[in-house]
């Protein structure tokens, strides 16, 4: 039993003092998340295929000395839509939330249509995010092509 004042179970194994824990990443996606965050100079612990009651298998990343921007959170929400993020401050969970896709994404993902103006001219990509039959679709503001989440390529 964790005594009062002790870090929560989640961060007990690899405790970090200041940083972030991204949990409930779909199994196999942690390295993609790490790539998005570009964590070259931080202390990083990556857990792959950990057992999870909700997801059977999951991945988890803990990063010391790092916070997240909204831009990065949006990217994580695309790669790992079920991820939960804990912000750790002085070894305690300061804030914990589930990632959420925004309604609009700017300059975050690439349009898969090779004839889209964003692929041919210097134009920032813009996508509207919408859910149909519980699948998230990303619709290009310019060429109007719509892609399910699994077909999305991050910039």
């Amino acid at each position: 039993m964790a005594k009062e004042g002790e870090p929560k179970k989640e961060i007990k194994i690899h405790p970090i003092i200041e940083g972030i824990v991204i949990d409930h990443i779909s199994a196999g996606k942690a390295l993609e998340v790490a790539k998005i965050l570009g964590v070259n100079n931080n202390l990083v612990t990556i857990g792959l295929n950990l057992s999870s009651s909700k997801m059977k298998l999951k991945d988890c990343i803990k990063i010391e000395g790092r916070s997240l921007s909204n831009y990065e959170l949006n990217k994580i929400a695309i790669v790992a839509p079920n991820a939960t993020v804990s912000m750790i401050h002085e070894s305690k969970v300061d804030d914990k939330f589930k990632v959420k896709l925004p309604k609009e994404l700017k300059n975050t993902i690439k349009c898969n249509n090779p004839n889209c103006v964003t692929r041919i001219q210097k134009v920032e990509t813009r996508f509207n995010v919408d859910e149909t039959n519980s699948v998230s679709y990303f619709k290009c503001f310019f060429c109007e092509r719509s892609y399910p989440i699994n077909d999305i390529e991050i910039l």
């Binding site: 889209c116 103006v117 134009v123 290009c140 310019f142 060429c143 092509r145």
Partner: peptide, 9 residues
Amino acid sequence: HPIDGSARL
């Protein structure tokens, strides 16, 4: 225009 999305741009 032959490029998709060019009119929106």
